[in-house]
Design a protein around this nucleic acid. Sequence first.
DNA 1: CTGTTAGCGCGTTCAC
DNA 2: GTGAACGCGCTAACAG
Lengths: 340, 340
Amino acid sequence: MRSPTIRDVAKAAGVGVGTVSRVLNNSPQVSPETRERVLDAIRTLDYRPNLLARQLSRGRRVRSIGIISPFVNDYSFAARLTGVQTALAESAETYDLVFYHVSSLERFHQRLLTLAELNPVEGLLVMAIDLTPEQCALLWDAGLLFVGIGDHLTDDWPLVGGDNVAGGALATRYLLALGHRRIAYVGDTFAAPHGFSTSEARYRGFAQALREADVALPPEYVRLGTHGREPAYNMAAALFDLPQPPTAIFCMSDVQALGCLAAARDAGLRVPEDVSVLGFDDVELSRLVGLSTVRQHLELGGYLATRYLLSLLDADTPPLDDVPALPPFEVVERQTTRRL
Amino acid sequence: MRSPTIRDVAKAAGVGVGTVSRVLNNSPQVSPETRERVLDAIRTLDYRPNLLARQLSRGRRVRSIGIISPFVNDYSFAARLTGVQTALAESAETYDLVFYHVSSLERFHQRLLTLAELNPVEGLLVMAIDLTPEQCALLWDAGLLFVGIGDHLTDDWPLVGGDNVAGGALATRYLLALGHRRIAYVGDTFAAPHGFSTSEARYRGFAQALREADVALPPEYVRLGTHGREPAYNMAAALFDLPQPPTAIFCMSDVQALGCLAAARDAGLRVPEDVSVLGFDDVELSRLVGLSTVRQHLELGGYLATRYLLSLLDADTPPLDDVPALPPFEVVERQTTRRL
DNA sequence: CTGTTAGCGCGTTCAC
DNA sequence: GTGAACGCGCTAACAG
């Protein structure tokens, strides 16, 4: 049941493999009738040349890295990818970038297994997903170099990204410093379909900062749901309906903050007079809307992670001795937060 | 000066190739000292295994398609890529998606040459770039199937995308119907570094619609510059500074429309009371901001183009008899345009 | 434990 | 024109 090779075609057409090859690369020196016979055989066998073998034979030397990510339609993905491309473009050698899009955690693991087994790429950029120690070991044993880019929940594998727990705490302390004591959290469900835990990390920092400040966190102030503007809208609306609504909302992402903004407007609340809203990410849009948020350097993250991976791959490149660090998160104060 | 092979390593270490291979795949059955010797040789030779040969030998059957695009940090790119991934995920066979990012027209052509010569992928998605007849012939001769996705300036090669001239005209007629007579155009330079002509196409439709309506188009109403929010901001600011500023601006993209919005705000102009702003693309962000725009089905375009390409590649897949068509452009009226 | 050999699938010489 | 070798770089199965 294996796919037909050039030899099968040759046999079927009653010619030698050389002739088949000539037909394939439409060399002029093959008689029309022979060519036709070969083409017939190709069609009936549904033959397709093996690109690997072809490249090998043609003496190609490829260098390639992969990028594995659970989403591609997010602004943050685009920003990071830009950084990746910049780093790749700067490299002396040309690298192919292979995309592995995974839609679930299982698929992610499967992909990892395949990658480890077949080694189609020299290195791997792991975006927005956490690797278990087992998965790290798997890649490591396969000689597949990898660098994470995005989160920072564990520090036992190379990862370029901010510390989201610290980021959550930073954001919260900022709101506390503004005098807020009733602060709500709007974020993604922790056990998200892909198992990304950014929301959880930021929440952890949030809760921790509140604890340290001896500020109560009523359970109804924590709203978790699907990522996106609409769900956030609903979560915020519910918050405003509370007998004692929060005076400030910390959203785990800018997109969700936008939903909160809309909910506030529809609830007749003024921002920031009646309620402060703080986002996270500082995507381009936030500047336009005047949203206060926490800045993280997305594009730079992609750039640094890629450079680091390349330095690992290539002994020639001056190897960065350690995993590069991103500038710390910083609060960007705009028009949606203010002193209570 | 070719890169060292496993045989070179074997010779240098004074062992057989089998042993080197075992070391490479860290087989347990190799004595520590031999392993060390081999590793030394690997290091001194700067040996790196050829992944192609490895995969071939391991009996892998890869299927892969490439996507070639001039930019990656655009929302439209992300949206289309989402469609591509969806189509790929639906396919029965697993395809690797190799990404070729090109930063200039020359590089684009170079890439095409390399791709045609080495055939690293079975098919190619050509995004947002026009192919010359020569380039089409090149790919065709190489047996490299390709489908365009994005523009529609020529119809002599398979391309999934809307007619941008018609789109530009549609947008313009909409503004005309609102009563606007002083309409400006903000778009990319026609002879852009990458040579993308989307801007030119939309402009053509724009100018044509104005002509048909007998509406004058002063040269100073046409502003062309680099793509991006900032340049658009400046172009819009210049427009507002005109003795007779336009009452409406048609932007060739949503990103640029956002720049115009910011410029209007900074110029003390209200939108849409003082000036209408119309974008193009309908990226997700536009809905959030309430930007009036022209919807093109970006994600669907990526999806259909990919499906079509796969059907070409695979005789098994029911082949779509012709290049799939996208739904026509449509104006999405939100809060940035209104009747004069 | 280790060296040798036979493929992996294809392109490319050569002779015929 | 065409077929039969050889080689691309590596893995795996086999002897030793």
